[in-house]
Amino acid sequence: MTNRIVLALVILYLLLPLGATLVFGISNGNGIGFSSYQEIFSDHDFSATLLLSFELALASTVLAVVLITPTAYWVQLRLPQARPMMDFLALVPFAVPAIVMGFGLIEVYSGNNTLLSILSLGLVPLLSNPPFNVVNTPQLLVCAYVIVSLPFVYRPIDNSLRAINTKVLTEAAYSLGSGWWRTFLTVVLPNIWPGVISAALLTFSTAMGEFTLAELFGIYTFPIYLNVTGQNNAHKAASLTILSFLLTFLCVLGIIFLLRRRPGGAKQDERLDIVAIK
């Protein structure tokens, strides 16, 4: 019985701020009205930052999926001994939070460190000097977003790959004369679409809402705009909050829907695939 009461209270606690924010956004001191939404939609910064965040999120999503999906398949098929390394790389973002990673990225790409030049096979000096000069650019931000989303992109894709019989499917395709890329694109990928798309949606919604790295790099994205707005106009910020909640809502709804369609359905231990642990 206690657990029912606790559950009811928890749900109340989760719903309350949303309801209060909705009301707070449409009430402006002397009455109820949608003036804050009108203000938002006529604000040039709103559309500009939203567009920039959308572009960054899209780029991170595409890069994450293109980089990680073939690698996960490759490791499953050809390099099972690299699996611990993969697991390790997917665990590092837990121990190195975004604030530390951003700080480290700025230091790596803005200084001249001989040790790093050697360790990176000369790539760091190449990227940190003209013509690339990646420090504090949107390009570096996209790369950082891919790393931040690594844990929750790799897991659902890896789980999907395990749910189908990757090896048998591949061998069947090979024996029918299909090459590696063709097997991957036309046989394996269609079978793991739900997992890939749900990982993509999670990356997208995280990148849309990411604040820490954008703030460190000084790039004016949508969450930064929301933070600035909140310092001057609390009602407008409340309405913006509702809008970004709707965005999260849509992304997560899509993931839940897709994971059900995955071969074998959403298994008990795969519920974590739905959460972007920061």
Binding site: V92, P93, V96, V100, L116, L119, S120, L140, L150
Partner: peptide
Amino acid sequence: LFEILPAVMV
């Protein structure tokens, strides 16, 4: 480039 080196650097 984007995960290990920043941590090593720090």
